[in-house]
Design a protein around this nucleic acid. Structure first.
Lengths: 142, 142
DNA sequence: CAGGATCCTGAGGGATACTG
DNA sequence: CAGTATCCCTCAGGATCCTG
């Protein structure tokens, strides 16, 4: 399979020695950057959101997430499991049944992410307006 | 140029009619998803972080952000400007001088994002431990 | 200095077929 | 049902060269 392998990570805790608070992560190999990239990817947030407060099986997740391929769902679930954000439970029955649920760690992430989603919801009109302004200005220039 | 064009967005406010609170964004074309994807991309967060509380010029940003190409810096800045998160000021001098600063909207985003960064910093050890467990289990299985 | 225009690669990710 | 294994293709994004 072509599933990504465990990138050799953790070069350090803080990313550089600059004391300025806005200097957290200029380096590409920064650990925080890596984690951020992972949870902010195309599907992870969706999965975490859907698992909030309940357990779902593979097919249920697939049905809930519009447009995901089973390849990517599998991959996403494996990553999240590896990071300790979700728990995978295989029931030894036939046909197989596999349940996914958030770990406590995953739950704390959800509430944090929720703040970002709320920000987006609150400000999407303002952003849309800014885009409209920008685009019309660009169009009139052309 | 190959800079991305204004994707025809805004299909609706909430993403679907499901009343469940964890159902915000199953659809791919969801407006919240779009905004989230944009601000969570490889470089946007870095730029916003660096502009917190100060103004920087193009070259200063490029120097601060390790590994970014000028192509991507330009692209990122344009996106953020279009979304109304940063302001671009061209000084009519020679050689040209262009300053970038956060708008008020951009500032509010920064504090929200900071919560996510803080979460990551707080939990990176736990995540690293989870990965180590997962990887060693996978290795022993092979 | 700030960025536009091109070329090109590689990883992300879809579609499909197969299996325990 | 819950995956795995392949093939294949798009496109984000780096490298490079060029201008006002």
């Amino acid at each position: 399979m072509d599933m990504e392998e465990g990138t050799s990570d953790s070069p350090g805790h803080r990313c550089d020695t600059d004391p300025d608070p806005w200097q957290w992560d200029r380096r590409e190999d920064c650990e925080v950057r890596q984690i951020l990239d992972r949870i902010a990817d195309k599907w992870s947030l969706l999965v975490i959101a859907l698992l909030q407060g309940r357990t779902l099986r593979f097919t249920e997740l697939k049905r809930q997430i519009d447009g995901i391929s089973q390849r990517m769902l599998t991959s996403t679930l494996r990553q999240l499991e590896r990071d300790g954000l979700i728990e995978r439970t295989v029931h030894p029955v036939v046909p197989p049944r596999v349940d996914y649920a958030l770990t406590p760690l995953g739950s704390t992430l959800h509430s944090t992410v929720q703040a970002l989603v709320t920000w987006t919801e609150l400000n999407q009109n303002e952003i849309a307006a800014a885009r409209a302004r920008y685009d019309s200005a660009a169009t009139s220039r052309a």
